[in-house]
Computed example of a mutant assay.
Amino acid sequence: MPQQRTDVTHRLVPSPAGRIHLVEQGTGPLVLLVHGFPESWYSWRHQLPALAAAGCRAVAVDVRGYGRSSRPLAIDDYRMLELVEDMTAVVDALGERSAVIVGHDWGSVIAANSALLRPDVFRAVGLLSVPYAPRGGPRPSELFARMGGDEEFYVSYFQEPGRAEAEIEPDVRGWLAGFYAAFSGDTMPTPDAPDPHFVGPGGTLRARFPSGPGPAWLSESDLDFYAGEFERTGMSAALGRYRNMDRDWEDLADLDGAPITQPSLFIGGGLDASTHWMADAIKAFPSTLPGLTCTRILEGCGHWIQQERPAETNRLLTDWLDSLPA
């Protein structure tokens, strides 16, 4: 791809949600970047210039409910089918017919389902942190309720509207700082410490966050940006994604066991719980991701892959994009 640099552009484009805020840099084949929880388009700040310099039109979105995108009030407006429609609408609003979609955390799940539901639009898919696992098995709420014994898994903790918000919103900045540190390779608790993915009886997630300096990848200005976004929007819309997992399980029943056949990439963190909990999903990639052309586990890396290891992530992404059919 030709080398180039362009200015960064912020735009609002129409979608079924009302509008989606996006940040765009570069010209060339469209690469749509989708963040996870609790993040923002800003999570791709290191990738936007690198992809633009490599000859791509890099576009990072604020997912529905985040940042300056629309925030519908109904919980079921955050179901997966709606988010896939948003991604498709963004491609259309940008005047493109197809795109490569790359996601991290929940964004990985959105990217995977976008590729499954709209293969006519999404010609390749990159997945960071959360590996692809086809729809199947028991209802998610039943599965999560069985995890942790006397402790409550964080996904279950997030289900009741208002409960997690009451923990987070009185001190958004402090909570985010602890959450990011809890799952970063350089600051996560030691294996013998209480697991921050779980809540003890009558406790909070924050009670298990590490104290001390924050992760190396997160500057004070980075934290200020994230905190400012969630202080303005509140947390309910972002948490809506977790509150639709059973709806998704029902909505996507026709995709039970379906593979993603487009060219794909997976990057995982060696210290990320997703890599270990979903090890069987990674082993199944030959059948579930038959188009997989690049997979890499970054040793010593936690959950926030593209921010913890931006140079490695950028190299892997640009090499993979260069390998895709025109």
Rank of each mutant, 00 (worst) to 15 (best):
I267F: 06
F37R: 00
S264N: 08
E169T: 15
L298V: 01
E250R: 07
A52S: 08
G302Y: 06
G228Y: 08
G240T: 02
G269L: 13
L22H: 01
V155A: 07
S211W: 01
L176M: 01
P210I: 00
R45I: 01
D222I: 10
Y66A: 10
P215R: 08
F144P: 04
S221K: 12
T288K: 01
H46R: 11
T6S: 15
F153C: 06
G300D: 03
R123P: 09
M87K: 09
F158G: 13
A279L: 10
P119R: 04
L317W: 02
R79K: 10
N113E: 14
P213I: 03
G95Q: 08
W217F: 10
D92M: 00
Y42M: 02
P138E: 15
G136K: 03
S43V: 02
I20R: 03
L51K: 00
S114H: 09
A17K: 06
R163C: 03
S108D: 12
Y154L: 13
D171A: 11
C294R: 15
L12R: 15
D254L: 14
M87F: 13
D77R: 15
L271Y: 05
G148D: 05
E24H: 05
L117V: 12
H10F: 13
L317N: 05
M80S: 13
M87G: 03
A281R: 11
M235H: 11
A111T: 02
A238H: 09
A111M: 05
E229V: 15
L223R: 10
T204Y: 05
G162F: 07
A326N: 11
E312A: 00
V23D: 10
P210W: 14
L51C: 02
E165G: 01
P29V: 06
S69K: 09
P72A: 05
F183M: 13
V84P: 04
W41K: 00
V199T: 13
Y180L: 14
D256L: 09
D120H: 05
I297V: 15
D62Y: 15
T27A: 13
L316D: 04
H197E: 08
S219G: 14
R296K: 14
F37H: 07
A145L: 05
Y154E: 11
E220D: 15
L83M: 14
L205E: 07
Y42G: 01
A58E: 03
R123D: 00
V31A: 09
H21M: 11
D120C: 06
A93W: 02
R139M: 06
E167I: 08
H35K: 12
V61Y: 00
P290F: 10
W249I: 13
W175F: 11
R118K: 04
R79E: 12
E231M: 10
L128C: 07
A54W: 04
E142C: 00
F285I: 00
G270Y: 13
R163F: 00
V31L: 09
A17I: 04
V102P: 01
F230D: 07
G28Q: 13
I110N: 04
Q25E: 14
P210V: 02
A237C: 14
R64H: 05
